[in-house]
Amino acid sequence: MRATFDLILPVLLPSWRFFETVEASPRIEWAPEGSDRWRAVHPRPEKLTGWTMLARLFFNPAWNEALFLVTCAERFREDGAPAALPHIQERALLAARRVEPGAPLQLRIRFVLGQGPARIEEEIYRAALFE
């Protein structure tokens, strides 16, 4: 009951403080075990055509999943919320298996802040990714 109340309260009393400050941003990546060839779970394309942008106004599930994983990574970092991690592992595994069907895999979560020489990176999680 308490858990339900904690979930509903932010819906009934939203904060609406969008982008009050620009915080460190997560990067969720996988690689074959023992390798340093890290790839984003949801890679960002170089560019999108106008047609793709238009279509994504109506149907954009992969991107919305990527935003959900960003939220999960932020929850994991801020609250150490263990419940957020399985969501990331499950979806990272699905994405990685499309590229690497058989190899053992690892997952890492980094946070980046700033740009250029002032850029700060912090790795908060790295572990094997199990089926």
Partner: peptide, 24 residues
């Protein structure tokens, strides 16, 4: 927030947040 008034905060959103849809 002074960073928003200068336009720096929005530049940061584009530069390193998870939101921009492409490198372009």
């Amino acid at each position: 927030n002074a960073a928003w008034r200068r336009g720096q905060a929005l530049a940061d959103v584009f530069a390193f947040s998870a939101y921009p849809v492409s490198q372009q």
